[in-house]
């Protein structure tokens, strides 16, 4: 149980850390798009979390791809 909580916490921290990392050159309207899911009710929150998870995975994959390229 402790392990599960700890893993969840570490994932969440990583998640938020990634989420709050400033990245330039993106459309500032994207934030408003995301917010629409949050204010769209409980189902919207689910969409928001799902989107965040996908973004997280996307970022991880991109990072992994970059590392492989650097190694090569």
């Amino acid at each position: 149980m402790t392990l599960v909580v700890s893993t969840t916490f570490s994932k969440t921290s990583l998640f938020m850390n990634f989420y709050l990392t400033p990245i330039a050159y993106l459309d500032p309207g994207t934030g408003s798009m995301l917010l629409q899911a949050i204010v769209g009710g409980s189902a919207g929150l689910f969409v928001f979390v799902r989107h965040l998870w996908r973004s997280f995975r996307y970022a991880e994959q991109t990072k992994a791809g970059d590392t492989t390229q650097e190694t090569n």
């Binding site: 400033p22 934030g31 996307y58």
Partner: peptide, 18 residues
């Protein structure tokens, strides 16, 4: 504040069930 790493937010939201 532009902090998201995924550029195609509209598409992602759509496929996430918006």
């Amino acid at each position: 504040t532009p902090r998201m790493i995924q550029p195609k937010v509209a598409d992602s939201m759509k496929s996430s069930g918006f």
